[in-house]
Nucleic acid binder design. Sequence first.
DNA 1: AGCCCAAAGTAACACGCGGTAACAAAAGCG
DNA 2: CGCTTTTGTTACCGCGTGTTACTTTGGGCT
Lengths: 245, 245
Amino acid sequence: MGIPRLLVVDDDSEMRSMMTQFFQQNGYIALPASSESEIRTHLTSGRIDLILLDVMLGDENGVEICARLRAEQDVPIILVSALSADHQRMAGYEVGADDYIAKPFNPQLLLARVRAVMQRAQRTPSLAYRRRTRTFHFDGWVFDGKRDEVHSPDGYLVSLSQRETALLKVLLANPHIPLTRDEIATALDVTGEADKPEAQGRAIDMLVGRLRSKIEANPKEPQMLRTERGVGYIFTADISVDEDA
Amino acid sequence: MGIPRLLVVDDDSEMRSMMTQFFQQNGYIALPASSESEIRTHLTSGRIDLILLDVMLGDENGVEICARLRAEQDVPIILVSALSADHQRMAGYEVGADDYIAKPFNPQLLLARVRAVMQRAQRTPSLAYRRRTRTFHFDGWVFDGKRDEVHSPDGYLVSLSQRETALLKVLLANPHIPLTRDEIATALDVTGEADKPEAQGRAIDMLVGRLRSKIEANPKEPQMLRTERGVGYIFTADISVDEDA
DNA sequence: AGCCCAAAGTAACACGCGGTAACAAAAGCG
DNA sequence: CGCTTTTGTTACCGCGTGTTACTTTGGGCT
């Protein structure tokens, strides 16, 4: 596939050049754009592997642009927003963005996200936002994805709550990537697996703890669902995925 | 089939004429309408191939109109809404719309959607089509649709009440789609299977519980008629339909 | 080393949703 | 008209989930 080609869309020219430079230093080809028409020009004139799309684009709206693009094309899109806790975040996912990141962001985290989204897009070329049910295998565990339960390595059936299932899906979708609490909360709200409007406080910690108590052999010393102090949580395991139709 | 005939329903007269003109320029016959009664007049007085239905219709609600129409007719419906990320999006699908598009929309995209929906309607029977068919098979059960009874997988005859029958029909017409209580209530009131004016309180929960006790092997752990916490109910089963003339 | 403090674990509680039993009202039916 | 059947309402309870508060952990100080 060659060198990945990114399209960086932002109306602030300083931000735009900063980001393109950053990505080029990290081995990507990064092209700048500032409007929907420019995006379309790039899409028709050359290959684009991923679009980083700012939500606030002056008079244009990134979320709506994302929706339009997605209705026509299958190109992966990551929405970028300065508004951290706004409701457009949800709209972004509904509208088909593959991921969502808030400004200001940790550069390394952004890189990880870009890598993750592109890998995912390669594995499953279908529309990213369609709810896919797949079967995951990790460290001897088997997770159906359609049911709120996991099969343990020693053959027992462990039932999960809806929210625990949702969390597990988020983790399996982002293996080896540190996820902040905000990101987890956002993903949970958005995937439709859960319905709480705004996750606050220590809800995520509790959720993690409860999931650990179910799927970690020794919850006190978690092997898969580890915590990254000061950052969030990271899921480390050998994961394989069955696509079931 | 001749020239496709569309019905454009919107309460904003400017929007209405803009859309009808647009479609007529693109080779369609487009008729304007602004209320449920006007829709019905058109449906009875002449062929309509597709309805473009605005969600916000002043005091009327496009989603509910869609539900009512769908309970009676098989005409393809595309819901149009100005609210981009609202929850009615889901409600629209649940209620049986063939597609959903947000205002403001790309005209070319709208045309593409219209074409796609009409092709699909020609190829595959829509949800509403199922509603009119006679005999359903699901997970070994057989439901005649004309009678208030179901044949269990092991050959017993289980009799249902009118309301339970109505609920089962609604569920079978919307498999694998979460239905809110409101939507179920609306559908029950509307389909003529029942005639209660306003469903309130926990009537739907009771109804679901009673149906479960009759058709679920283990009502405590329902396999088919599952609940989606905070949302409503969802029917999951492999359903096939016999159509007896 | 020991100390300090912020971050994470977690027990206990609170709260809301959904299941359901029991009752009440309404509709059939003789 | 009473009796049965269906349908809706109320009340109670359990469970899932978020919050609070306390405890534990760990990393950076002197």
